[in-house]
Each structure stands twice: as structure tokens, then as C-alpha cells.
Design a protein around this nucleic acid. Structure first.
Length: 801
RNA sequence: GCUGGAGUGGCGGAAUUGGUAUACGCGCUAGUCUUAGGAACUAGUACCGCAAGGUUUGAGGGUUCGAGUCCCUCCUCCAGCACCA
């Protein structure tokens, strides 16, 4: 046998598996249960990093384990191919975003294949393919018809120099991250999806899901339901104000939202958001309107993030107007303050310095009364003052419009009056035009496409114009898992019977960073489809596991500037895909959000393990010596385990114990301990003079999900004709793992003082006596009086003196 | 600040879920082999101590025959959210 040359065997088997299509998945297989394992598909950045390996090759271990355990496993892969990097390449390098993206996908497909993962590539999904986004647009149309999509104005960060909208994270200290220019808040019309309508169900349906609690609570907090009261306070021009001119003050109402209606008697002022409509309405009655106006325009300069982060409370009193506390009839001053957010609740709060920290800070700063009144029943008082009990949410509707090129065109056209109409289904996919200039100019790139305009006029009539916005890429990833099931269907987004056989997803593994965005958007999307009768489940993911990050060797996040980036291609080239897979799985348990640093020595240690497996195989395949007789290597079948043969019996015992515990750890995604148990087994095999071929083959089966190439190679060397990956996961024999004799500890006052060997059928009294008789134990008992002797079955004896 | 998670050798981590703490791997030390070794193999390796023995799971307390695991107080780190009324 040759040396372990990963380059040769990995290439060979990847080609062989491809050729024989061993990972091709049928929708139904007689006698097998379907198992749908999903991982978040990747953006085609053009280069696979260690994070991708961790995200895809480690879950592949589980997919392979499930397949060997008799399930019909679907483990698909695709590309989330729309998005900003392609467009930035277009702006910077003059690249065509489509060509850029498709070239990157070609490159990444090769890199992904080098993992030796068991993806069924025939089911690949690419979100920028018109065959895919036709259905994204179709779903948008469905939502539009059912009042789940609407047009509204929202505030966005606008960089006047770059003439582009910025995400919150692209704004630092109110300045554009790229050019350093001051960022403005600008009103932007956009298409919105009514995720807020689903807020209650998105919270309540979490209960039935088998998801980690931390994800559930993160989503709950994100949605942020709070139950409280809406109470109206009358607002009057104050009779004493010179602007009131003796008129009978006319009342306006300001509704406040509070979770503490029980503190209504302690209200000392009212504060409204600077954007609140009341300010304009009472413009004429506000004595210090100039000052108020200045405060409002100052507020506009701050991003929402800045407003929320500043610790300092600021505000301006609206002089000349007062509010009345509906419970007490007392006059209250009215303020505008930027700590009150227009988008949350009603955009107005009642200030209760006695019971709220922020209100207290505000009251102290502006010298407002701090009123200490007894609490009342919240429900009762709400009703008494004519308020109502309501829930309010932190979650806002989802704005899906982007003024970008490389995305799904929103399938809307406007008639000559400017009224919006959906592009009828027969014209879908509503294609992304190609004749655009990518240079940012302050308007959406699609507005410069002649082709799109001509298409629109040709179909709908002269004077009609197309929507020029594209969709947020979170839309694309909200439903991709349905498309894997039926990726070539041009009649439906996915056939009902295919969804019937596969959905919901049995296991969804992904990054913790997607907990509140992707995962929540997708849950909303599924519920909307469900309500429209388009899918059969209101939740798509039965089990979700989040994963952590792989850090650089220095314990920091990998980044080019820190120079701590591990290049997987280089390591795969040097040590092999099997080694990288095994090492990533060995670092720690999967499915917990813990970050592990990459240890360049650790990965070599794992390679060593595979080398030793290879050497053991060499011993086994070597020509058996003639006089080995009944024990000849390679000659012992699984049926020949015989307790009279002590050598093989002890070997089998460990083997079967290992099968049992690896199977258990697999189910909990503790791949690290699976590997350590394989190492222990190998250590024991190495010490044996003889190892049966059957036992070694069983070992290879355990190894196969982790290191699929080397396992396949050695399996074939041992004469097997069919792929190891199509064989069955080993079963353990309950009788073989039973111990007749076990060692138990003997404690004196909680400290281990001895160890005795007992046989399983010994009775408790005998065992206790044996323990007391142990030499070292007896020494510690000395002449002390024994108060109690406790025997924990099969574990220990505890003696109390 | 709030919420969630976590603190175990020099390092990544293990611990049958309240029952012999430190499995497995890395690193380190010594040795064997070698022209050489950043290879391979063998042995050792939680800490203190020559030893007997003692100590140890972020700190302190508690429950228990027995606590890394349960309870209370505190400290530190990580993640998410953050003036949410």
C-alpha cells in the first residue's frame, strides 16, 4: 500500500462520487424516512474561507451520519447571489455584476467540492437566476394582493456626497463611513411588508418550536411586545399665555402609550417626539416656536442610532401650551424631547420621574416636579379615564426597497396618473435590464434603463413607467428552502407534493448573526405563504442550531488587517480536506455559539490521527502469516465474537461501547467527543497484536462521516465494492458491552480513599464489606466510629465517620 | 444599562447530568531511531511536596454522605439589544 496521499485519494473519490451520483436524492425512497438538513446558503464572494468550511463541512458530518442511519437525507447547497459586493465591483472596476457573480459561483463550486461534502448539486438554487426570482416576484404580487405590501415613507441615512443611502452600520458619528461627509436624514418612499401584523404570532409560535431558548428570547426581545395602555391627555393653549388672547382654549388630544398606567397620578409632564404632528398643529400657539424649530432641526441631523445612544437627555418646553392629567385634572407642562421616538408607541410619553429613570433624569435636568403618589390599578384607571389597553411592539414593518441595481426588480409599474399596478403574473419574471450605468448618481440605476422603460410602455401603454427599485436580499433568502425541493419547476415555486414530502426542514444550522434578521424575516414570509394557502406549515424549521465563529490563532476575529487569516485552500492542499473537516469538528461541540481559535498545531495532530488509521490499515491488509490459524487477520467475521477468545472479546467490547457512545454524541452534535472516542479506539487497536478486519471496517464506518475520502479509500482496499457512504451505520450489541466486573471508588467523608473491583452480581452487603476492608480505606477509618455507609449502584461506596 | 451565554491544566476542551475532576488532542520534558529533523515511536506531564500526604473547576457562602454540576451573593469575559415609555 502506498503512503497516505490525500491529494490523490481526495480528488479520486470526489470524481468517483460525482460520476456515480451517490448523493443524488430522490423525493421519496421506499422504507426510508426523509430528513431535510439545511444550512444557510452562501453569498458568492469568490473565495471560500474557514468560516464556510465550518458552516458546511461540519454539518455534512451529520448529514452523512443520518444517511448511514437509514434516512433519505436532503442536504442541498445554493447561492444567495444578489447583493452589494457585485455592484461595488461594477462601480469600482467596471465589472458586469452578472458576469462577476457567475464567475465567482464557478470558482466557489470548485472550492465547495473540495470539502467532499455530500451536497446534491442537481438541486442547486441561485437567487439571481430569473427562473428563481420569477417566484420571488410572484410571491411579492401575492402579498400585494393581500394587503401585506404597501408604500410608505421612512427615514434613511443619506450621504449627499456619495449620493447613496447608507445602512446604520455605515454611519459613524453621523458621518459617512466611506467619504467622511455629514450624513443627512432623508425621507424615502419604499415598499413595506407588514411583518408587524404577525408580531404576536411570531412570538407565540416560538413556544412549539424545538429551538434553543437563547434564540427564542432574542427574537422575543427583538419583536419587543409590551402590553400597556393608551391614554389621551387634552392639550390646551394655556389661558395665561399671551398667544391665547383670552380665547377659550381649544383642546387637542395627545395620546400617550405607557406600560405603567398605575403611575398615572405621578405624572409631572408630557413629552412628545420632535416629529410629532401636534407641534405643527399648535405652531401658532407655541410662544417659543423658533426655539422648538431649532431643536427639531438639530434632531434631524442626528441618526436614530445617535439619538438612542446619547446618555444626555435634552428637550425644549412648548411654552404657551399645557396638558391636563385626565386622572387629576392638573395642568402639566408639555415638552418635546428626542429621547421620545416617533416610531415607537404613539410618539408621546407621560413623564413619571418618581418611577422611571429616564423621566427622572429629564425632570432633574429641567427642574420638573417629582410627584410621589400611590400606585393605582392600571386596568381600572385606564378605563376610568377613557383609555384603552393595547400592545405595542418594537418590531417595525420591513422596508424591502433598495435603490440598487443587483437585486430582484420590484414587479410594479405606474400608470399615467402615477398609480401603482403589479406586473401581471404572465409577464414574470420581470427581468432585470442590462443597459444601466452603475455610477451612483442619486437616483436608482434602473431609472436609467431604456430597455426597462420601453418594455413597460410596450406592454402597458405610453406614459407608463416602471418601478426602479430592487428588493432587499433578505427577501431572496426568505423562501429558498422550498426551491431546493423543486428547483426546475416553472409552473409553481415548488410542487405541493414535494413540499409534502420534505417540509418542514428537520434541522437548520446557521450563524448566530442571523438570529433576529434572516430567521425572523423568513418565519414571517412562511406565515404569510401559509395564510395564503400556499404552504402547509406555518413554521418552516423544526430544529435550529446556531454556531459560533472560528477565530484566528491569536484568538481574534480573522481579518486581513490583523494578519491572522487562515486560508483553507492552502491547508487542504497541505493536509487534506479530511483533516480540515476532522479538525473543525474536533475543536468543540457544534451548535453552541462559542468561538474557537484555530490552532495550527492542533490541525496537524488530527492529521496524525488519520496517518495512524492508514498505518493500521496497512497492517491489516498485509499478507496474513500462515500460522495465524483461526485468528488470521482479515479472517474473522462479525459473527465469530466469542467470549472464550479473550483478546477479541475485549477488543469488541470497546468497539461496541464506542459505537454506542458515538451514536449518542452524534445526536447531540458533540462531534468533538465522537472523534476523541475514535482516537481511544484506535489507540487500543494499535496496542493489539491482531485486529480483525471486520472490527476495522466497523471503525471505518464510524470514521466515514468525518473523513469521507480516507474511509472510502481504505474500505475499498479491504475489498468492498460499494461505497462506504451507502453502507449502514454500525449497530452495537447490548450483550457485548456489559461488564461483569467493574471498578468503583470508596470514599471516606467525601474523599476517595480506595478503589475496589466488584462483580455485577455481588450483593450490596458484600460490596460494602469489600470497601471497608480495603487497606487504604481501613487506614483512614482507623478507630473512628462508622456512622453511615452508602452504596451507589455501580458507582461508589461512601463511608461517613 | 438590559437580556442571554460562559468562566475547568500552559492551550482547545472532557466529565455517564449530583457520584473516582482534568478523557482526547495540542504544547512541553526525557528517551529511542536518524546524516539531519519543525518526522516517527516510547514514557511522563493539574498544582504544592523528597515522600507520606495535601490542594484544585472565577471568588465567597449554602444544601448534601458527596457539588464543575443545585441555591444565594459578588467578580470577569463574550454575544445581542439598547433612552422601548
Amino acid at each position: 500500500m502506498k503512503n497516505y496521499d490525500h491529494k490523490i485519494i481526495e480528488k479520486k473519490w470526489q470524481e468517483e462520487w460525482d460520476k456515480n451520483k451517490i448523493y443524488k436524492v430522490a423525493d421519496e425512497v421506499k422504507g426510508k424516512e426523509n430528513f431535510y438538513q439545511l444550512v444557510e446558503f452562501t453569498y458568492p464572494s469568490g473565495n471560500l474561507h474557514v468560516g464556510h468550511w465550518y458552516a458546511f463541512s461540519v454539518p455534512d458530518i451529520f448529514a452523512r451520519y443520518k444517511r448511514m442511519s437509514g434516512y433519505n437525507v436532503l442536504y442541498p447547497m445554493g447561492f444567495d447571489a444578489f447583493g452589494l459586493p457585485a455592484e461595488n465591483a461594477a462601480i469600482k472596476l467596471g465589472a458586469d455584476p452578472k458576469i462577476w457573480t457567475y464567475e465567482h459561483m464557478d470558482k466557489m463550486r470548485l472550492q465547495l467540492r473540495s470539502m467532499g461534502a455530500s451536497f446534491d448539486w442537481e438541486r442547486e438554487v441561485v437567487t439571481c437566476d430569473p427562473k428563481y426570482y420569477k417566484w420571488t416576484q410572484w410571491m411579492f404580487n401575492q402579498f400585494l394582493k393581500n394587503d401585506l405590501a404597501y408604500r410608505d415613507t421612512t427615514k434613511v441615512n443619506w450621504c449627499p456626497k456619495d449620493m447613496t443611502i447608507l445602512a446604520n452600520e455605515q454611519v459613524t458619528d453621523g458621518k459617512c463611513e466611506r467619504c467622511g461627509n455629514e450624513v443627512e436624514q432623508r425621507d424615502q418612499e419604499q415598499w413595506m411588508l407588514r411583518i408587524s401584523k404577525y408580531a404576536d404570532r411570531l412570538i407565540d409560535d416560538l413556544d412549539a418550536l424545538d429551538w434553543p431558548l437563547e434564540i427564542k428570547s432574542a427574537q422575543k426581545n427583538w419583536i419587543g411586545r409590551s402590553e400597556g395602555s393608551e391614554i389621551e391627555f387634552e392639550v390646551h393653549p394655556h389661558p395665561a399665555s399671551p398667544l391665547a388672547k383670552g380665547e377659550v382654549p381649544k383642546a387637542e388630544g395627545v395620546r400617550v402609550f405607557t406600560t405603567r398606567a398605575d403611575t398615572l397620578f405621578g405624572v409631572s409632564y408630557i413629552a412628545i417626539a420632535p416629529e410629532h404632528e401636534l407641534i405643527l398643529k399648535l405652531k401658532d400657539k407655541i410662544e417659543n416656536y423658533d426655539e422648538v424649530e431649532k431643536y427639531i432641526s438639530d434632531t434631524k441631523k442626528k441618526s436614530e442610532l445617535d439619538r438612542q445612544q446619547s446618555k444626555e437627555k435634552t428637550g425644549v418646553e412648548l411654552k404657551g401650551i399645557k396638558a391636563i392629567n385626565p386622572a387629576t385634572g392638573e395642568w402639566l407642562s408639555v415638552w418635546t424631547a428626542d429621547y421620545v421616538l416617533a416610531g415607537y408607541g404613539t410618539g408621546a410619553v407621560m413623564g413619571v420621574p418618581q418611577h422611571d429613570e429616564r423621566d427622572n433624569a429629564f425632570a432633574v435636568k429641567y427642574n420638573l416636579p417629582i410627584i410621589d403618589k400611590p400606585l393605582v390599578d392600571a386596568k381600572e384607571v385606564t378605563e376610568k379615564v377613557g383609555g384603552k389597553l393595547v400592545s405595542t411592539y418594537r418590531l417595525r414593518d420591513w422596508g424591502i426597497s433598495r435603490q440598487r441595481y443587483w437585486g430582484v426588480p420590484i414587479p410594479i409599474v405606474y400608470d399615467t396618473e402615477g398609480k401603482a399596478h403589479p406586473v401581471p403574473d404572465e409577464h414574470l419574471p420581470w427581468l432585470l435590464p442590462t443597459d444601466v450605468d452603475h455610477k451612483p448618481s442619486g437616483v436608482a440605476p434602473l431609472s436609467k434603463s431604456k430597455e426597462l422603460l420601453e418594455r413597460t410602455e410596450k406592454i402597458f401603454g405610453k406614459g407608463w413607467r416602471p418601478e426602479v427599485e430592487t428588493m432587499d436580499t433578505f427577501v431572496d433568502s426568505s423562501w429558498y428552502f422550498y426551491r431546493y425541493l423543486d428547483n426546475n419547476n416553472d409552473k409553481e415555486f415548488s410542487a405541493k407534493e414535494k413540499m409534502e414530502s420534505w417540509m418542514p426542514v428537520d434541522l437548520y444550522m446557521g450563524g448566530a448573526e442571523h438570529t433576529t434578521m434572516h430567521l425572523l424575516y423568513s418565519r414571517f414570509w412562511v406565515k404569510a405563504l401559509f395564510d395564503l394557502g400556499l404552504v402547509k406549515d406555518a413554521e418552516a424549521y423544526k430544529v435550529r442550531k446556531n454556531r459560533g465563529l472560528i477565530l484566528g490563532p491569536d484568538g481574534n476575529k480573522m481579518s486581513k488587517s490583523k494578519g491572522n487569516v487562515i486560508d483553507p485552500d492552502e491547508i487542504v492542499d497541505r493536509l487534506g480536506a479530511d483533516t480540515v473537516r476532522l479538525y473543525l469538528a474536533f475543536m468543540g461541540p457544534y451548535g453552541v455559539t462559542v468561538n474557537y481559535p484555530w490552532d495550527p498545531n492542533g490541525v496537524v495532530g488530527v492529521r496524525r490521527f488519520l496517518e495512524r488509521v492508514w498505518k493500521l490499515a496497512e497492517r491489516i491488509t498485509a499478507k496474513p502469516a500462515k500460522d495465524f490459524g483461526a485468528f488470521a487477520l482479515g479472517d474473522i467475521g462479525q459473527g465469530t465474537h466469542d467470549s472464550k477468545n479473550s483478546l477479541l472479546a475485549s477488543q469488541s467490547k470497546l468497539l461496541h461501547k464506542t459505537i454506542k457512545s458515538i451514536s449518542e454524541d452524534m445526536e447531540e452534535h458533540k462531534y468533538n467527543t465522537c472523534i476523541s472516542k475514535m482516537m481511544i479506539l484506535l489507540n487500543s487497536f494499535d496496542k493489539e497484536e491482531k485486529v480483525s478486519t471486520e472490527d476495522f471496517k466497523t471503525f471505518l464506518c464510524l470514521l466515514a462521516p468525518f473523513a469521507p475520502h480516507i474511509a472510502e479509500e481504505l474500505w475499498t482496499e479491504l475489498g468492498e465494492k460499494e461505497s462506504i457512504h451507502l453502507s449502514l451505520w454500525p449497530k452495537y450489541d447490548e450483550n457485548l458491552i456489559k461488564d461483569d466486573e467493574i471498578k468503583i471508588a470508596v470514599q471516606v467523608n467525601g474523599k476517595v480513599r480506595g478503589e475496589i473491583t466488584i462483580s455485577v452480581d455481588e450483593n450490596e452487603e458484600e460490596i460494602k464489606n469489600k470497601g471497608l476492608a480495603d487497606e487504604n480505606v481501613a487506614r483512614h477509618l482507623a478507630s473512628k466510629e462508622i456512622k453511615k455507609v452508602i452504596y451507589v449502584k455501580g458507582r461508589l461506596i461512601s463511608i461517613v465517620v
